[in-house]
Write a protein that binds this DNA or RNA. Structure first.
Lengths: 241, 241
DNA sequence: GAAAGTCAAGAGCACTGTTCGCACTTAACA
DNA sequence: TGTTAAGTGCGAACAGTGCTCTTGACTTTC
């Protein structure tokens, strides 16, 4: 067992990522300098390459941390509510994502803004990236199991789109533990589509606010996001939205 | 008249931006090197500072060009259709924006992705940035003047949001020529809100596709965007969507 | 205690944006 | 027409950057 060595190493990696995260919050992704980070840590710039093969790997660690950050924030806000309060949980996810984004604008930009040039997201980032949308899926699934969808439900989708969604759903469920897989496969394609659109609207709205597209166009940001939560929730068939 | 000197200067500025635009398409915004651009032009790196005070100014020129590019693409696609074909024009804008984005991914990322760190958009960029949404506003306004909104129309918004929209609408109309101002002020707040949400959904969807968030989630991209155009068009009250 | 593995440091490479002083051309004015 | 001022391009230089490679020291394992 090389336990102690691995422990020290893991702690060092965590320390580096933490300082890098702080730098990211101050200067943005492209302004993240390995040298500056190591300067803060009192070590030589070259030393960091023992822990991260290159700058991109460090960025990947930050991306994963960011996805986990927003996912955790949404999960915590949502799980604090009664499980049957579907509308409340739905709105809580929307609000939590926005709050997290305003608190961590650079981290938000890192994961939902333009991809860093020359950088292609490795496999490690795909799982954490699905956290928030899976949360919305779970709420929709819970609502389906509950008093049932509202009478009209989500509008019907054209055949080709329906087929694609169905294929995606089974593919996604294939790589999941049985319990969550069941939740995904039981989802009607129209509901899944509505959830995807709600997810898109959520991050589209938050992104537009954060990146300045709403400047001078809409100022009641929180009220507006609540409105988006309501309309998308209604389109998904979440009762009470 | 200092005509000739100014002319040759303007041509040179255009030439520099054109080469920079090409470089942007190959290496992305952060990878845009003034040295590399000047190398392509066969001139010294320092010479470019006679035309642009710094790299940010060059980026601003590219941002303006990109906004104009997507705005023009949308305008051309939409104006090719009959003015009374509101649903067709609405869908054409959606498709044109997506097509432009796929053709110019780096330019799209430049204007709708994360803001370049340390760079704050100057005033010059705000006007071109509103082109697409104003196009959607125009279509909605035309639809209002036509056979009228669909019976149910956009759902009502809460009072605070309504008030904000109304205030914004008058503020925006104040800085416009009378003809377009009339179009804006005549817009019911609920319709304006629906247009803003449609605009957000459009760029949220295209951005999610371009930045890889839809990978493995949804593959029928064109069909999906058409679906988004339809649902948002319906929410806005565009007849025929 | 010696061999093997691990690590931080430092020098160096090829870049970057930007500034500055210099020579040169060109347009405007007396 | 001659002079002057502005505009222009260049090369050197500065302070940074990510990254590689070698060197020497330290720690673990046998």
């Amino acid at each position: 067992m090389t336990g102690i060595r691995d422990r020290v190493r893991a702690e060092f990696v965590a320390e580096i990522t933490e300082v890098a995260r702080r730098h990211l919050g101050e200067h943005g992704a492209a302004g993240l300098s390995v040298r500056a980070v190591t300067r803060d840590l009192g070590m030589a710039a070259s030393a960091v390459y023992r822990y991260f093969p290159n700058r991109d790997a460090l960025l990947t660690a930050l991306i994963v941390a960011a996805y986990e950050g927003v996912g955790t924030a949404a999960r915590e806000a949502e799980s604090a509510l009664d499980r049957d309060d579907h509308a409340g949980r739905w709105a809580a996810v929307f609000r939590a994502v926005r709050a997290w984004a305003l608190e961590h604008p650079h981290e938000y930009a890192l994961i939902y803004g333009s991809p860093v040039p020359g950088y292609s997201a490795p496999q490690d980032t795909t799982e954490p990236a699905t956290r928030v949308v899976l949360l919305l899926v779970r709420i929709a699934a819970d609502a389906l199991r509950g008093p049932g969808l509202t009478p009209d439900g989500p509008p019907s989708a054209p055949a080709d789109l329906r087929a694609d969604i169905e294929a995606r759903l089974t593919a996604i469920a294939a790589g999941m533990d049985p319990e969550r897989a069941e939740m995904v496969t039981a989802l009607p394609p129209e509901t899944a589509l509505a959830v995807i659109d709600a997810w898109t609207a959520l991050f589209g709205t938050v992104g537009f606010e954060l990146f300045g597209q709403y400047d001078g166009v809409i100022e009641a940001r929180q009220a507006h996001l609540d409105h988006v939560a309501r309309t998308t929730g209604r389109a998904t068939g979440i009762p009470g939205t």
